[in-house]
Amino acid sequence: MLLIPCPFCGPRPEIEFVYGGEAHIARPADPSALDDAAWAAFLHTRSNPRGRHAERWRHLHGCARFFNVVRDTVTDRFAEHEAGG
């Protein structure tokens, strides 16, 4: 059970959260300006690193907010967190 640092509520057990995938993949401001490949990259391509991973969690059964954290995908250690999307 991961202990996930919610920036609003403090560390809470994993079962209170839902995972939101890789962070910092912003929806393009004007999707129609993207060609198919660029749009597919936004939709589907992920960095999927072995190691530090910036990712989103939502504290569903707490403050219900999304936030970003950096977690090591090998050791499961959390490095830092930041609010917002």
């Binding site: 991961l2 890789e22 977690r71 995908t73 090998v74």
Partner: peptide, 13 residues
């Protein structure tokens, strides 16, 4: 388990 992982180990939940 539901989150990116290379840990080859999962959690109790």
């Amino acid at each position: 388990d539901g989150y990116n992982s290379y840990a080859q180990r999962g959690g109790l939940p």
